[in-house]
Design a protein around this nucleic acid. Structure first.
Length: 744
DNA sequence: GACCTGCTGATTTTT
DNA sequence: TCAGCAGGTC
């Protein structure tokens, strides 16, 4: 009786502020369910309420499995559930990223797949380095085939659950055959290193379940309720695992939005969500179509854009929110000016009473970031870059972590290679080659080989001594892996390696920074131990290898956020500035681009637009420095896909007289390194541009169009273009080398 | 073995 | 432009 009362109370709390569709999604707990959750439709609220509901009706937390793509999403989910139910229950839910949950299971069941539980997890950089090692062993030159390409081929094979035999069988072209060879060796190398790359965490999970009936039964039984977030981004391997786990009870709930699928290039298969009903014929579909985030203007724009894609689930997103401001479109002459323009809007918004933290600047590629950083810094606007070089990816951090990896997993040859000569120990390429050869001949790990350094005849005396010393050092500190060691113990180890000394001697700003970073890392380990009573160094390494520091970035402080659109997924901001809207940049274009890749670019734009709550600025530049050269850019096709009535175009820079224009131009290039060697700027900037002596304001004649006035000059040399307003036909953009304009 | 120089090729990156 | 590399020199 009492129990029932509590349940009702819980339910009231759970169903508060949910609309009818959301309630239906929360309550449908038996059988397959697809929730198509449009942008801003309260998806996270539904997921967390659903789990809270399961708990409130007496389901056990440890029979619930909730899979997300990011740690951040998992963390948010857990926190929000904890607010709805007893926190001690919330903790017991199996909620986490695909990779971290599977890593946890694989460590537990490692004996079933021929690993030991202390296996290393290789991130992309480690994996690339391992591929290079393997290519080197096979005598395959990196000129012959790009290791990055090899890596992406292998990764995509694993994501599609294509094993080495299948891959080898289907390899037809010479390059595919080479990759097959590398794939086979790479696979063996990882096993030998007792290591898995990110993709292996999925692949080995399938193998585990496929090849061990008891294990499969156990987990099928255990996870009675499965929930998958961002289902549109699952790849084949993830899809297969979910299918295996849900097979017996079919209580599978997937949530996603096909319009926001932006990871095709990483193996995500949009068909997983499009075909959910085929996979689960008795499934129910609930669409969450009411948007609580954005204005009508923003949603209309988003809708008009996505309409241009063919492949999608039908839905109509709507909102009760007001119309809101129109979208403002700006263009500038150079990418440098574009960044300054963005800073200008930010200051304008700030003056209108917004906080910096309300504003985000999006770009398509990371390379664009620097211009905005500079522009914001010179305007004293505080900013935060999301997704920049992660703390854990810094060289010194990776080096120190490799020392730790080595004491945990002595078979980890990649970790060995990273640190054996860092600091220099007189073991260079030649010595290393000898060590590798001896390891191969005697089936030893590289570290173990060092123990027998004096048996390696080809090794120089000095290298023999160093190698043995290195072995002894690692061995001496092996005990650190087993216990919760203190800061000073860890510090002592890293000091003894000579790594700190190397940095201390340099005494540069950079080296002092690096020392601080290492100290910060050791502090971080301490904190981890404080929060995890039974955790050891290996647990710490696992945690950080599956964490990016985006997860920890504090968006709450009052700073403008700079990020790529991919990083923006799942976030929202009152004001969003989307930059670089130029054909070829956004959408990014390549000549051999697949039609589905083009649709993905459009979805990416859709994601960008739907991050905004109140106001959007779109910007593009007429010229842009890419790969060291200045290129002419054309306006993105996406801009034309937004109805004109939703946009205010502002091309003020076109209308300014040529004195102002010249000034801004000079300013632009004074700040561009590539032009800074030009000490005396000619008064007439068109001379600066190239061979032509035309300038803005000149009256010219054209063979076909007749008389006109130059309003804009862009590009350099062969690429130089003029915008001319002709009396007969209006504004035309012409290449000077073809147009043969005559100055009057 | 360590350091210098000249060539090449380049998206997005939840884990 | 710029990082990452191979290949040469000390």
């Amino acid at each position: 009786m009492l129990k029932l009362q509590i349940t009702n109370e819980d339910n009231n709390k759970i169903f508060q502020n949910l609309n009818n569709d959301q309630i239906a999604a929360v309550k449908h707990i038996n059988g397959p369910l697809l929730i198509v959750a449009g942008a801003g439709s309260g998806k996270t609220k539904v997921i967390t309420s659903r789990i809270a509901y399961l708990l409130s009706i007496g389901k056990r937390p440890d029979e619930i499995l909730a899979l997300t793509f990011t740690n951040k999403a998992a963390k948010e989910m857990k926190e929000r559930i904890a607010r709805l139910v007893e926190p001690e229950k919330a903790i017991k839910i199996w909620a986490g990223t695909f990779h971290s949950i599977f890593a946890r299971i694989l460590r537990k069941e490692s004996h079933l797949i021929n690993y030991t539980s202390n296996f290393s997890i290789y991130d992309q950089e480690d994996s690339l380095s391992a591929i290079k090692t393997v290519m080197n062993n096979l005598g395959i030159n990196i000129q012959q085939i790009n290791p990055n390409f090899v890596q992406s081929r292998i990764s995509s094979a694993k994501n599609r659950f294509i094993d080495i035999y299948q891959f080898e069988r289907s390899a037809e072209s010479p390059s595919e055959k080479i990759i097959a060879k590398i794939y086979i060796e790479y696979d063996a190398y990882l096993k030998k290193n007792n290591a898995m790359d990110f993709d292996d965490l999925l692949v080995n999970m399938i193998k585990l379940l496929d090849n061990n009936k008891d294990c499969l039964n156990y987990y099928q039984n255990k996870f009675k309720y499965i929930l998958v977030d961002e289902y549109q981004d699952t790849n084949r391997a993830q899809y297969l695992i979910i299918k295996l786990l849900a097979k017996s009870h079919q209580n599978i709930c997937v949530v996603g939005d096909d319009a926001q699928s932006i990871y095709r290039w990483r193996g995500a298969d949009i068909h997983n969500i499009l075909d959910f009903q085929k996979d689960y014929p008795y499934s129910k579909i609930i669409k969450l179509e009411q948007n609580y985030r954005s204005t009508k203007t923003i949603l209309n724009a988003a809708d008009s854009i996505i309409k241009n894609n063919r492949n999608q689930l039908s839905k109509k997103i709507w909102t009760n929110n007001p119309d809101g401001d129109k979208i403002e479109l700006y263009s500038t002459f150079s990418d440098y000016e574009e960044a300054n323009k963005a800073a200008e809007y930010i200051l304008k918004e700030k003056n209108n009473g917004r906080n910096y933290g309300d504003i985000a600047v999006f770009f398509r590629t990371n390379a664009q970031s620097l211009l905005f950083e500079n522009a914001l810094r010179s305007n004293q606007i505080p900013y935060i870059i999301i997704g920049s070089l992660s703390f854990y990816k810094r060289k010194e951090i990776k080096d120190v972590l490799s020392y730790f990896r080595l004491i945990i997993n002595p078979n980890d040859n990649e970790a060995f290679l990273r640190v054996i000569n860092e600091p220099p120990r007189g073991i260079g390429l030649t010595s290393l080659r000898n060590i590798k050869q001896y390891a191969l001949d005697n089936n030893l790990s590289f570290l173990e080989t060092c123990k027998y350094a004096f048996n390696i005849n080809d090794l120089q005396k000095k290298a023999q001594v160093s190698a043995l010393e290195f072995y002894n050092l690692i061995n001496e500190y092996k005990y650190l892996a087993e216990k919760q060691s203190s800061f000073s113990e860890l510090y002592e180890f890293i000091s003894k390696t000579g790594y700190l000394n190397l940095l201390q001697e340099l005494q540069t700003d950079e080296s002092l920074d690096r020392i601080q970073n290492i100290e910060q890392l050791l502090n971080d380990i301490q904190r981890f131990y404080e929060n995890n009573e039974n955790g050891n160094l290996s647990d710490y390494l696992q945690q950080i290898s599956l964490t990016s520091d985006i997860d920890n970035k504090d968006l709450s402080s009052d700073r403008v956020s700079l990020m790529t659109i991919h990083s923006a997924k799942g976030l929202e901001f009152p004001v969003v500035i989307i930059t670089g809207l130029e054909q070829g940049l956004f959408p990014l274009e390549r000549s051999d681009m697949h039609y589905e890749e083009k649709e993905e670019e459009r979805r990416l734009f859709y994601v960008a637009i739907t991050r905004a709550k109140e106001k959007i600025y779109l910007t593009y530049s007429e010229t842009r420095s890419r790969f060291g050269a200045v290129q002419n850019q054309n306006k993105s096709q996406f801009i034309n896909e937004i109805p004109k009535e939703l946009i205010i175009s502002n091309f003020e820079s076109y209308n300014k007289d040529n004195i102002t224009k010249t000034k801004t131009y000079k300013k632009t290039f004074e700040n561009h390194n590539e032009y800074s060697q030009i000490s005396n700027y000619p008064d007439n900037y068109s001379q600066l541009l190239g061979q032509s002596d035309l300038k803005i304001g000149d009256i010219v004649t054209h063979q076909q169009f007749g008389k006109g006035k130059i309003v804009q000059l862009t590009g350099f040399g062969q690429q130089q273009k003029a915008d001319v307003v002709f009396e007969s036909v209006g504004k035309k953009s012409l290449y000077l080398k073809f147009a043969k304009l005559q100055k009057i």
